[in-house]
């Protein structure tokens, strides 16, 4: 423990975690856990705008996200693993999104669905005052899904990509 240099004072949580790493390494168990996590992603019931309707469509009978263990939409952030940011994040909503993210227990993931959450989408123009231009300005995003709005298939594909990412654990580089 002595060799580890102390983290810089202004480091973010994310940086701290990468630097320190887990205290106990249980590789086999960790892998097993990741397999389990990837197959039971519980999204937060949380719609921001247009994309939320496609998110609902993805959860309904035609596309049925339940086939991947992700159909259990949790109304409370404290029971959710994955935050699907579906829609434009307005500046008024930004702090709320951040608060919700902080309320989610770790390990947690975020999917940015639709152009607006990637970098402002159609609502981005010089002088825009109302929106946050990209969800990753507030919270770390794992998977991006472009489209306006993306089809439910795209959301499911994004979810599958997130599963791959989780299953790969730390060895996965993007």
């Amino acid at each position: 423990m002595k060799e580890t240099p102390p983290p810089p004072a202004n480091a973010t949580t994310e940086e701290l975690l990468t630097q320190l790493g887990p205290l106990v390494h249980l590789d086999v168990l960790e892998n097993l856990l990741n397999q389990a996590r990837a197959r039971s992603l519980w999204p937060l019931t949380f719609g921001l705008a247009c994309c939320a309707i496609e998110m609902m469509a993805a959860g309904a009978s035609r596309f049925d996200m339940d086939r991947f263990g992700s159909g259990v939409f949790r109304p409370s952030a404290r029971q959710a693993d994955v935050m699907i940011l579906a829609g434009t994040i307005s500046r008024k909503m930004g702090p709320v999104v951040k608060a919700l993210w902080d309320q989610m227990p770790s390990p947690k993931w975020a999917i940015a669905m639709g152009g607006c959450t990637i970098d402002g989408g159609p609502f981005k123009y010089p002088g825009q005052y109302a929106i946050v231009e990209g969800a990753d300005k507030i919270i770390p995003v794992d998977v991006y899904i472009p489209g306006c709005p993306p089809r439910p298939e795209a959301l499911i594909n994004g979810l599958l990509m997130l599963e791959q990412k989780i299953k790969a654990g730390k060895k996965f580089h993007v």
Partner: peptide, 12 residues
Amino acid sequence: VYDKAGYTRADF
């Protein structure tokens, strides 16, 4: 291609 998703913004 209607079901694209990516790990970074640069994918788009």
